[in-house]
Design a protein around this nucleic acid. Structure first.
Lengths: 132, 132
DNA sequence: CGGTATCCGGTTGGATACTG
DNA sequence: CAGTATCCAACCGGATACCG
């Protein structure tokens, strides 16, 4: 199997590297959230805006367009008044749910340790400034 | 099991949500790469700089400090001249390799489809501007 | 060798206001 | 309803130069 770090490095160094492309997409602030929301089925623009809460329409549109461009979700305009636009995961987008779930499970199990480490680190830094 | 979207959403909406914290860490430009490089064992600062190639010392330091702060890697200073500093994954950091590999495998299998979708989308946009 | 200091341009996310 | 337009501040990553 070619899962040695050296292989992955040669890989990740390339700006077109698969991991880089995917992390860039999934890494931005709202993308993963939207994919998660769409797991249960299509949502309208206003539904998404409501569920996400604080996101502005501009940013929501941006995120949705990028995900659509990458074939992860499909945008369907229903010709009616008032206008209705549905967003739903494509088959491709749906396959992303699993790796995202894996990461989420890691996060749920280990974020506490991460945050504790963070506090420890910050305390050590404070000591270095205040007490030294 | 509580893997319904609604649960995840309530989760992801929280800025302190595990997924958000982890994606923020893993999403930045060099973090995943560095974790991957360290899979095979400790590396010195200059080794990392060499392997990553284009990254500037400032950015490399930043990334390493953040990962250290979150307890994902350990920084060891060897008191000798010339100075030698080793970076290696902590146990916590090592457990991140698996979810990252899952995402990487998805990326390798599906990035082609993503990029094709991207081209299709861009072509459609071009047509809309040039030919309309 | 392993950083830090300073400066800087581009991108990201958001506030606000307006439109088909 | 589902966006778009404009403006803006903060942050990120990088270039360059210098230091213990």
């Amino acid at each position: 199997m070619d899962t040695k770090a050296a292989d992955m490095v040669g890989n990740v160094l390339d700006p077109n590297c698969p991991s880089r492309v995917v992390l860039a997409r999934v890494g931005d602030k709202w993308a993963a959230l939207i994919i998660a929301v769409l797991e249960d089925g299509p949502r309208r623009f206003s539904e998404l805006k409501g569920m996400v809460g604080v996101v502005t329409p501009k940013v929501l549109t941006q995120t949705l367009r990028t995900l659509e461009r990458d074939g992860l979700l499909r945008r369907t305009i229903h010709a009616q008044v008032p206008p209705r636009v549905d967003y739903e995961l494509t088959d491709l987008g749906a396959t992303l749910l699993e790796p995202l779930a894996t990461l989420r499970h890691w996060a749920e199990h280990n974020v506490a340790a991460m945050l504790r480490a963070r506090d420890r680190y910050d305390d050590a830094q404070d000591g270095r400034i205040a007490g030294d």
